[in-house]
């Protein structure tokens, strides 16, 4: 009896160790293949040149990289102020039913598929404007960023010690001033990193851009026209029947992952320092 229990104990614990190992494995493989297949194409040209026509080797994704930065930048500029304000509301005033509902809705919003957000942005922006545009892409990405910014801002603001607020209020500062000039500066580092994390995530989104920003083989900086983005470029190049395009898709994917994960990883470390420090 005891022996079977001991055996069972070992089996279960081993299975848990094995599960953790198996779960880590795909990341190792994916990162390995990304480096193996993508690193060869990394060159200055990739960042500074335009895509070449079919059949010509070389070229880069300069327009797509700039396009991603513009579209994501605008989305962040819209989503971060709203998200931070909402997060501060939840942390500082969020005790009632309204706040609970906001919290719940935010969580639910974060679960809506990005393709559905893309369809909504199509109806909201593309249809009234009459054409695909970078702006429509920014709207879709801003919606996708918002939930993460709100909930992480709330978390960061909550980390500010109560005594800060009490001290400010005791000095006669009104509530708004306490929040604006004492609590927010104290939470600033955390809020900045958390917001950038949301922005980095959104930078990797493809589905909501397919029928909003669409894509563009040419150089374009106008917001009311289709604009190239890195994820959509990778998608198009990966599906193309040309080996050199596929290779460029891998390089594009590597650049995208570097953009997203290195930022996330660095931010993660900074956040940890902010938390413990």
């Amino acid at each position: 009896m005891m022996r079977t229990r001991r055996l069972w104990n070992h089996a279960v614990l081993t299975a848990c160790y094995a599960a953790a190992g198996i779960v880590v494995l795909p990341l190792v493989l994916i990162v390995g293949h990304l480096l193996g297949k993508g690193a060869a194409g990394l060159s200055l040209e990739f960042f500074t040149h335009m895509p070449k026509p079919v059949g010509e080797l070389g070229g880069g994704m300069a327009n797509a990289i700039v396009g991603t930065l513009i579209i994501v930048g605008i989305a962040g500029a819209v989503a971060i102020p709203i998200g931070v304000a909402a997060g501060v509301y939840l942390a500082e005033y969020g005790r009632g039913k309204f706040a609970a509902l906001v919290r719940y809705t935010t969580d639910v919003l974060s679960g809506i598929p990005s393709i559905v957000v893309g369809v909504a942005a199509y109806g909201l922006v593309v249809v009234p404007m009459g054409r695909f545009s970078a702006l429509a892409g920014s709207v879709a990405l801003a919606i996708l960023m918002l939930p993460t910014i709100i909930r992480s801002t709330e978390e960061m603001v909550r980390l500010v010690p109560r005594s800060y607020r009490e001290a400010a209020l005791a000095l006669g500062a009104p509530r708004w001033k306490t929040v604006q000039q004492v609590v927010l500066p104290a939470a600033r580092a955390g809020i900045v990193t958390a917001s950038m994390l949301a922005v980095a995530r959104a930078a990797g989104e493809t589905a909501p851009l397919l029928f909003t920003a669409l894509g563009n083989r040419f150089w374009s900086l106008s917001l009311d026209e289709p604009m190239a983005t890195l994820p959509v470029f990778i998608y198009d190049y990966a599906r193309a029947p040309y080996d050199d395009w596929n290779a460029q898709a891998w390089t594009g994917a590597l650049v995208l992952v570097l953009l997203v994960t290195i930022i996330s990883a660095l931010l993660r470390l900074t956040v940890r320092r902010v938390r413990t420090g």
């Binding site: 990341l27 994916i30 990304l34 980095a200 995530r201 930078a203 990797g204 989104e205 493809t206 589905a207 994820p231 990778i234 998608y235 990966a238 898709a249 891998w250 994917a253 995208l256 992952v257 997203v260 994960t261 996330s264």
Partner: peptide, 9 residues
């Protein structure tokens, strides 16, 4: 944090 398109390729 890895973008969905990367899993795809």
């Amino acid at each position: 944090a890895i973008p969905s398109i990367v899993f795809g390729i």
